[in-house]
């Protein structure tokens, strides 16, 4: 019998792969309106926010940050949630050439995921998937 947690992580990885592929196709073939900078800025903002907040939380709680590898979850898996957040924001919002509003949206959206995660750490991947 498979562990439920494994399934969730696998789902998250597939989602991240799928949304990355969709964005690559969108900006090369499908004709996404957003600038090429939009996904880069959103993903970078989401990563940075996720890493910063995890660092602070870990310091506060006197534990090892999860991105350093805790319970089989490495830095790549740790950032999947932020990755999906960043790409989703950049493909769903159009702000012309302005990048600040989508950076703001990526950071704010990321914080919402984290709040859910703090409340129910075990269910974080599920929340990250469902809330999108």
């Amino acid at each position: 019998m498979t562990e439920p947690k494994d399934l969730r992580l696998a789902a998250l990885r597939r989602f991240a792969f799928a949304i990355t592929l969709l964005n690559l196709l969108g900006h090369t073939v499908l004709g996404f309106e957003q600038s090429w900078a939009a996904p880069l800025v959103c993903v970078a903002t989401a990563y940075a926010a996720e890493l910063l907040l995890e660092t602070l939380l870990a310091l506060q709680q006197g534990r090892r940050p999860r991105y350093l590898g805790v319970g089989g979850v490495g830095v790549v898996d740790f950032l999947l949630s932020a990755h999906i957040t960043g790409l989703a924001v950049s493909m769903l919002l159009y702000t012309g050439e302005r990048l600040a509003p989508i950076a703001f949206a990526a950071a704010a959206r990321n914080w919402r995921s984290r709040r859910s995660a703090e409340m129910l750490p075990a269910l974080k991947p599920v929340f990250a998937v469902r809330r999108r």
């Binding site: 907040l53 602070l56 939380l57 704010a108 914080w111």
Partner: peptide
Amino acid sequence: ARLAALALILVLYGFA
């Protein structure tokens, strides 16, 4: 951590 998150979001909101 919470305050840092809030500060980050407020700063980005300011730019936006």
